[in-house]
Amino acid sequence: MIGLAFLSPWLLGFLAFTLYPVLATLYYSFTDYSLFGTPQWVGLDNYRELTHDSTFVQAFTNTLVFTALVVPLSIVLAISLALLLHRPARGLAAYRTIIFAPSIVPAAATAAIWMWLLNPQFGLVNGALRLFGAPTPPWLSDPDWAKVSVLLMSLWMIGSDMLLYLAALQDIPVDYYEAAAIDGASAWQRLRSITLPHLTPVMLFQLINALIWSFQYFSIPYIVGQQGQGKPAGSLNFYAVYLYKNAFSYLKMGYASAMAWIMFIVVMALTIIAIRTSNRWVHYAK
């Protein structure tokens, strides 16, 4: 009962602000609905149509590929940065601020800055690579490299995730390390047996959140892919971008709702898998 009492504000909000729109979306997904007029029941037609829609399949595949890249990379990068910025050093506050700052740059600005930096001929990045005699990728003009470019942009904005690990690192009792030091554990052993296990609750959070985020990733691919066209060669046609176009450019709200529900089910399945397996790798304080 006490548990429910503590949960009740959220539950009220859930009933008012979430349950209704979610059910409405579910209903729309079985209808032909344009935002105007009455939705027309069409049964499973929207879902059936999606299986034949090559643009949808492309969007789905692109998003899966991007998710497979961005989720592990952002976890590894966020943890590495947090470890680097955890220990005292001269100018630590400045370093932390620099790494954190990109996460508050608006998406339109981020896209613009990186499109300049990644210009194949005149951009700073290829300029630097040329200096070291390294090969210069075509970045945004090539379908494969375009995904890498967007990946770079999202990793640049990792600062807020890094912050979570920084916060979690504060909670590790120091005596664990002292005991380990007395036992003569190496730095690597301390990392594996003390630090990382303590970070696993946050890792689970970041894992699930990154999954959801990457399926809903919209602003940057929308802008970089030139107003949602997914350029070059459809490589930036991401799930949320195509969903948005169906809803607001083509007024196919029913179709977009079906897309939303497929996304819901796929991400939910991945989330449940993550939570189910989490008791094997996530360590909570006893």
């Binding site: 613009a112 210009n119 194949p120 001929q121 005149f122 075509p138 970045w139 003009s141 090539d142 030139q226």
Partner: peptide
């Protein structure tokens, strides 16, 4: 490819 490399940076 050369044309794309030339034009891609221009938004």
């Amino acid at each position: 490819k050369k044309v794309a490399a030339f034009t891609s940076g221009f938004t």
